[in-house]
Computed example of a mutant assay.
Amino acid sequence: MTTVDLYSKAHCVQCTFQKKKLDLLGIPYVEHRIDQDPEALAVVQAAGFLQAPVVIAPGAFSWSGYSPDKSTALATHLKEQT
């Protein structure tokens, strides 16, 4: 399965929920901490996002904020790819 990029920060409740949802759905991800990594923050800002968490996945799946519906749609899309 394809690995997605999750951009998060410390003390972010939505980030914690998003990580738990990705884990629950079995979606592998690499976490990038925007509060510790200026390059990760630059990626998020260049993509036009203003809040954490940010999920960036192959195809048209990119969003900010905790989104269980988009996470489920992403899981379905990734399973169809395999």
Rank of each mutant, 00 (worst) to 15 (best):
residue 1 M to L: 12
residue 2 T to P: 14
residue 3 T to C: 07
residue 6 L to K: 09
residue 8 S to R: 02
residue 9 K to T: 14
residue 11 H to K: 08
residue 12 C to K: 05
residue 13 V to I: 13
residue 20 K to C: 06
residue 23 D to M: 07
residue 24 L to Y: 10
residue 24 L to D: 14
residue 25 L to V: 03
residue 27 I to F: 07
residue 29 Y to F: 13
residue 31 E to N: 14
residue 32 H to M: 00
residue 32 H to N: 11
residue 33 R to Q: 13
residue 33 R to C: 04
residue 34 I to K: 08
residue 35 D to V: 05
residue 35 D to Y: 01
residue 35 D to E: 02
residue 36 Q to C: 09
residue 36 Q to Y: 01
residue 37 D to P: 06
residue 42 A to L: 08
residue 43 V to Y: 06
residue 44 V to W: 07
residue 44 V to K: 07
residue 46 A to V: 03
residue 46 A to K: 15
residue 47 A to P: 01
residue 48 G to K: 11
residue 51 Q to E: 13
residue 51 Q to I: 15
residue 52 A to I: 06
residue 52 A to C: 11
residue 55 V to R: 00
residue 58 P to Y: 08
residue 61 F to R: 06
residue 62 S to E: 10
residue 62 S to V: 00
residue 63 W to N: 05
residue 64 S to H: 12
residue 65 G to I: 08
residue 66 Y to D: 00
residue 67 S to A: 15
residue 67 S to Q: 15
residue 67 S to R: 15
residue 67 S to T: 03
residue 68 P to R: 09
residue 69 D to K: 12
residue 69 D to M: 10
residue 69 D to T: 12
residue 70 K to N: 12
residue 70 K to W: 02
residue 72 T to I: 13
residue 74 L to F: 06
residue 75 A to H: 02
residue 76 T to D: 13
residue 78 L to P: 06
residue 78 L to N: 01
residue 82 T to K: 10
